[in-house]
Simulated assay, not measured.
Amino acid sequence: MRTSGVTPFRHRFIPRFISSFIPLAFAVAVISSVLVAVPAAAQSTEGSWMIRIRALSLTAADKSDAIPSLGVPADRITVSDKIFPDVDVSWFFAKHLATELVLTYPQQHDVKLNGTKIGSFKHLPPTLLLQYHLLPDGLVRPYIGAGVNLTLISDVDIAVANVGKLDLEKSSVGVAGQVGADIRLLPGKFLNLDLKKVTIGSDVLLNGKKVSAVGVDPWLASIGFGVRF
């Protein structure tokens, strides 16, 4: 079993976090070229709406219950990390307050048992947050947020040799926390840096009966650009 404490997490998370930004840098360059084409007239006045396009790196917590009947210790079922795009729509209903809806398309993840791939599944994780913007008129505009995540699980294809096919719950409801900042580049145009922690979990089923539970509980680090209008 994994020992508790900060050190094991830091050694595992930080290299994965840093390496994620190599492909993210390329994605940001593509996003930037698209947003440059937005007409200047649409950026001249900051309105109540903001759309951000981001490249996001998902780093899973890799937590799972032990399966005594199969001789599987805790935390041996893992879910692959992922880099993918997301789009969010924010509505500023007060100077310091906004709601943010984060959207993407279904993402496929590999599932491993003791380091060996046993299948895959897809998840669709729309998230709704309430944000407080500390410096809404500043060059750098930090914010904090909290909300709820609904994860829909589909296309489950997982099987263990000499055991049979496994299934996952079809949905998960959890909480989300967020810190980030919008950095003003031009009128109405922003660089966005964002970090979220989301609770996502699912029971693991064998012949319809729960045999374990997996906690994906990912960190979501993203970088992108936004337009406010």
Rank of each mutant, 00 (worst) to 15 (best):
V6F: 15
V6M: 13
R12S: 12
P15H: 02
I18Q: 10
S20H: 00
S20C: 04
F21N: 02
P23D: 05
L24C: 09
A27P: 00
A29P: 05
V30K: 01
S33W: 01
S33Y: 02
V34H: 00
V34W: 01
L35M: 11
L35R: 04
A37K: 14
A37Q: 13
A37V: 03
A37C: 07
V38F: 00
V38Q: 01
P39Q: 09
A40N: 13
A42Y: 08
Q43V: 02
S44V: 08
E46V: 14
E46A: 13
W49L: 11
I51R: 02
R52S: 04
I53V: 14
R54N: 09
R54G: 00
A55V: 01
S57K: 00
S57T: 01
L58I: 12
A60C: 08
A60N: 15
A61P: 02
D62H: 03
S64A: 11
V72R: 03
P73N: 08
D75K: 10
R76H: 11
T78K: 07
S80E: 04
D81F: 05
F84T: 10
V87G: 02
L97T: 08
T99D: 06
V102Y: 06
V102C: 05
Q107K: 08
V111E: 02
S120M: 05
S120C: 04
P125C: 06
P125Q: 10
P126A: 04
L128T: 09
L129R: 10
Q131G: 05
L134I: 12
L135T: 14
P142H: 05
P142E: 08
G145E: 04
A146W: 04
A146F: 13
V148D: 01
I153T: 09
I153R: 09
D155C: 04
V156I: 09
L166W: 06
K170D: 15
V173S: 08
V173Y: 08
V175R: 15
V175S: 15
A176L: 03
G177F: 14
G188A: 06
F190N: 00
L191M: 12
L193C: 10
D194F: 05
L195N: 05
L195T: 11
L195W: 12
K197I: 05
S202V: 01
V204Q: 05
G208Y: 00
K210V: 11
V214S: 01
G215T: 00
V216R: 14
L220Q: 10
A221I: 08
S222E: 06
G224C: 03
G224P: 12
F229C: 12
